[in-house]
Computed example of a mutant assay.
Amino acid sequence: MTSNIVESDVSGLSSPFGPVPTQSGALDQAGASEIDATGRFDQAAEIADAVISLMRIYGNLKARVANTADPEIAALFLLVRLVKDGPKRAKELADLTSADPSTVSRQVATLVKTGLIERKADPEDGRASILVPTELGVTRVQEHFVNRGQMIEPMIADWPETDRSDFLRLLRCYADRLESRREEVVQTMSKSHHLQSTHHLPPPQHVPTPPPPHASTERSN
């Protein structure tokens, strides 16, 4: 005997894994998932746009400061890393900051000359040397942190404490994730740059293929 179960009856059935979806319900779920994924990608694109805008602003500020400041300012980032992460070899410092070794070498020389760091024998390899911040260098970094706080505070002065805490937590989380996936990000950015470059190339010009030469016709006598 043929069952006369209609769609409304099927929707009420259940299984050990939950309600049995109807065909239209499954399509609705798929459509909702696609819309949700699209919304997440759109939101991620907006976040990327905001991050890029922030990088441009800080890049412009850094360039303006570099044009008026002494060489110690450019080398200050290395000093901060040494104070926070401990003594390191110059090569390790270059890898940590993703900087060119020759640039790091010049900046290290500046820091040594100004008495902010000193070279000491590497306890693991006496033939090599490590870079160690001096007491003056540690004081300089502490002053730098105070100055940075004074720069940021007016921009978030009217934020509620919860917003300040959430912003700090999420920003640190984003920075840590970016650092852990650095190579993947570089590959993605390289692909994007390649696509943009090829997109702006002029379309190839069509060169008509010349017709093949006609074979000479032999005349019979």
Rank of each mutant, 00 (worst) to 15 (best):
L111C: 06
Q43D: 08
G18R: 00
P21H: 01
A48M: 11
T103G: 04
V186H: 07
P101F: 03
V108Y: 03
F167I: 03
V10A: 06
L78M: 05
F41R: 11
H214F: 05
R169T: 14
P21L: 05
T198K: 09
E183T: 14
A32Q: 10
D158S: 12
D95T: 08
K88D: 06
P87T: 00
Q196T: 08
V104T: 03
G59Y: 09
S24N: 08
E46R: 14
D49A: 13
L82D: 03
I73N: 11
G12D: 14
R219D: 06
M155N: 08
R40K: 11
T114D: 12
M189P: 03
V80Q: 12
T134K: 02
T68D: 09
V146D: 13
E218W: 11
Y58A: 06
L13D: 02
P210G: 02
R140P: 00
L178T: 12
E135D: 09
A26V: 09
E46W: 00
H199P: 01
V112G: 01
V108D: 02
M55C: 10
A50M: 08
R169E: 10
G31I: 04
D49I: 02
R169A: 15
S165H: 07
H144M: 12
E135H: 05
P203E: 04
G18M: 01
I5D: 06
P212Q: 14
E135Y: 03
E153F: 08
G39P: 01
A37G: 00
A63D: 10
P16E: 07
S190A: 14
T103P: 01
Y174L: 15
R64W: 02
S197N: 02
R172E: 13
G18D: 01
R56K: 09
V141T: 02
T97F: 03
R182K: 11
